[in-house]
Design a protein around this nucleic acid. Sequence first.
RNA 1: CGGGGUGUGGCGCAGCCUGGUAGCGCGCAGCGAUCGGGACGCUGAGGUCCACGGUUCGAGUCCGUGCACCCCGACCA
Length: 480
Amino acid sequence: MAWQALTPPGEDFSKWYNEVVYRADLADQSPVRGSIIVKPYGYELWENIKAGLDRRFKATGHQNAYFPLFIPESFLKREAEHVEGFSPELAVVTIGGGKVLEEPYIVRPTSETIIMDAFHNWIQSYRDLPLLLNQWANVVRWEMRTRPFLRTLEFLWQEGHTAHATFEEAEAETLQMLDVYADFAVNDGAIPVIKGRKSDQERFAGALHTYTIEAMMGDKRALQSGTSHNLGQNFAKAFDIQYLDRNNERQYCWTTSWGLSWRILGGVVMTHGDDKGLRLPPKLAPYQVVIVPIFKNDDEQGVVIETATRISRELASSGIRVHLDKREDLSPGFKYNYWELRGVPVRVEVGPKDIEKGSVVAARRDIPGRDGKQFLSQENLAAQLSALLDEIQTNMLRQATEFRDANLHDVKNYDELKQVVQQGGFARGWWAGSPDDEAHIKGETSATHRCFPFDQPDGTGACLFTGKPADKIAIFAKAY
RNA sequence: CGGGGUGUGGCGCAGCCUGGUAGCGCGCAGCGAUCGGGACGCUGAGGUCCACGGUUCGAGUCCGUGCACCCCGACCA
């Protein structure tokens, strides 16, 4: 009994999160402050996230490209708001090859500027539009305080950058990509998200509009899980991206950018995890099924391993990501806990009794204890498990949605907002406040304006803070 | 950048107050036993005690300086 139980999430969510990330082999601490090593299991999870997104990007007409890690310092300065927003957190290279550089290079915190510089060269005609690119890359932001995956000095993400002929097209693109993010989060990540628009206070440095998907974590705090920006003509003007329209007139482009990082991986952990560790949605899980063989002696071991291997091959050939845990000297109970910590959606147990009966035991991670266990026939097992995985995916989304809805409260006034924030959860109410009002609320409650949800009620109401007439509702919550 | 904490085998820690050149648990290796919810036994490998300077016959321990990392806040994907 020397193993150490996880800190229960209800006791100290932050501590629980750190323990899960490290103990479930997602990541390791690195010698570099605020930077993590992503271990194979965590990286495979990220690869599945990438695959789900990349497929959607391609389906909406985008192509991948790759731009340099280093950006000339002067590029950042071309868009005033942009440089102001990012300069506090830049890493700057001043020496290369032992020589002081004439112009320092910025290690990209985001790539708008260097990509817009290329767009300047690439776009001449309306026939060149729209230009729809995406880049998978690492970026660096020198953050004060870091947390694995949620905020690291260096992180992996994708950043889409597009240029369009009109505001309407750029706006449509911005909203389309937000839909893509939401579709991915909901259907692959089983994370219910609220789509909305950021307040001016919270929008991206240099953007006209920033749209966001906001998710509720297991501690009822909000996680901004992906953002999509309509950059208007701000960057097009700063980088002189002009095209000749059908009437042979020069026009500035309208550009967008949209990004989603490995933070979403932290979101998966914090949305679904429980006191036994990770719970991974089947669509993202590196292993969807793990097979634990059970035997008492060499005779049993022979036949059990043989059967388990056969089943494993059958499942793999049906496209199920399966792993057979053949490790010896480890008891089944140990393996159950081991794989539960790592969030594998389904555990299949194969023992002598199962072989007698032609069955297996299937235990689902989303339903704890005996309730989640059932016997399945070895006949047609792949189809049965595929159906079970679908059911788990659906159930996890349902559980997360119920939790989110149960902690999303409508508030009429500031007192109610404070109460909601204090007990944990999202506070939703009419809002007509100023940036100063937002700052005031943040100062007093540490809750921030998360978004104006797209889903708006009819009519108008009194602002929860100022009492002034408001035509929009907003959501406030403590956020990561 | 403000506040707090910690640096001792791979990990978690004790030892420091009351100086006498290292110990526990886990993990790891070998053998055996066990295996339907984290069982076990025996044997073994593994440490310039964060760095530098000082006090001392002698420093993990006392003093000074520095560095690093973690946690809590303000800033952010």
